[in-house]
């Protein structure tokens, strides 16, 4: 009786799909949906006030000083994204290539490069905060020790260097990830292809440009998109190293910090505003979702199937 079998099968599939769907709905879809709803109301502390339409969005985008804070945070996210794209993903690709070509000590370096990725962000943040300490920090101690006193700066305390220092730490910690993904991509390239290419040219550069780079395109897509999402959701590292205010005077303020401070209030400075905070969250979410989706489609087209 095929019909009964089919029902059993349907039941079975339903039983398997419903629990994860329910979890997704409760813990992902519902919070996003409710944040969306919150954004359209006025909030007095925790009390939901009246429906205000797009007022909260207008506040964070066009009223001063929120507008310039939003802009400033957004600009910083863009800087973070492009810097990390070059430093983290660029260097990651070069490292992956070096590891793939099995330069001396590759086995050791494979582990060494990936090691910081395993560390918790909290540990990395505290560690580097100590390293950058203006008085006792090893970074400044070393500079003073080798006579480069002018380089002994309060790295996290001046607007010119604070964001750069955070970007550096992030790259230090995460470089192993793009490296690993690129390396995996490179290892999938069939040796016949490479052997054939080697018969044509001796140049490593041509090899990279014509063979390796096009064939690791799927890895590049993954790494780029994840970096994009990560850069615009950037929160833990700045929170631990410079605090919720994006100290000093907002030079390291990013959308994640700005959203958190607005929605939940900064204990030592501000009040909480769920309305504006939710509006920010919705804007961040929409921006990331739209750009990431668009970009994924674009990058996918570029990929070559082996």
């Amino acid at each position: 009786m095929p019909r009964l079998r089919l029902t059993g099968r349907t039941l079975w599939i339903t039983a398997l799909i419903v629990p994860p769907l329910a979890v997704m709905a409760t813990f992902v879809a519902y919070p996003i949906g409710s944040a969306l709803a919150y954004a359209f109301y006025d909030w007095q502390g925790l009390q939901r006030g009246e429906f205000v339409g797009l007022q909260n969005f207008y506040n964070v985008l066009f009223t001063e000083p929120f507008a310039s804070w939003t802009q400033r945070a957004f600009m910083h996210n863009i800087i973070v994204f492009f810097s990390l794209m070059v430093i983290q993903n660029g260097t990651g690709f070069i490292l992956a290539y070096a590891l793939w070509r099995e330069l001396p000590g590759a086995a050791f370096h494979r582990v060494a490069v990936f090691l910081p990725v395993v560390l918790s962000t909290v540990i990395i943040g505290f560690l580097w905060k100590l390293f950058f300490h203006p008085i006792f920090g090893p970074v400044n101690q070393i500079f003073r020790g080798v006579g480069l006193d002018f380089l002994a700066q309060p790295w996290l305390g001046q607007s010119s260097t604070a964001l750069g220092s955070l970007i550096f730490v992030n790259a230090w910690a995460w470089i192993g990830f793009p490296t690993l993904v690129f390396l995996a991509g490179m290892q999938r390239i069939p040796t016949e292809l490479l052997d054939a290419a080697r018969m044509e040219t001796d140049s490593e550069w041509v090899l990279i440009k014509k063979i390796v780079w096009p064939l690791v395109a799927p890895s590049a897509t993954v790494v780029f998109i994840l970096l994009f999402i990560g850069s615009f959701n950037w929160f833990e590292l700045p929170y631990i190293m410079v605090g919720l205010d994006g100290s000093p005077f907002g030079s390291t303020d990013v959308l994640g910090l700005y959203f958190y401070r607005t929605a939940f209030g900064n204990q030592s400075a501000g009040v909480q505003d769920f309305g504006n905070g939710s509006a920010l969250a919705v804007l961040i979410f929409l921006f990331i979702a739209v750009v990431a989706a668009f970009w994924t489609v674009r990058l996918r087209k570029r990929e070559i199937q082996l």
């Binding site: 950058f132 203006p134 008085i135 006792f136 309060p154 996290l156």
Partner: peptide, 16 residues
């Protein structure tokens, strides 16, 4: 204030 005080955080200041 100490040299580099702009980068000196609260906990470090307390320790000093």
């Amino acid at each position: 204030f100490p040299d580099g005080f702009t980068g000196l955080d609260y906990a470090s200041a307390q320790q000093l």
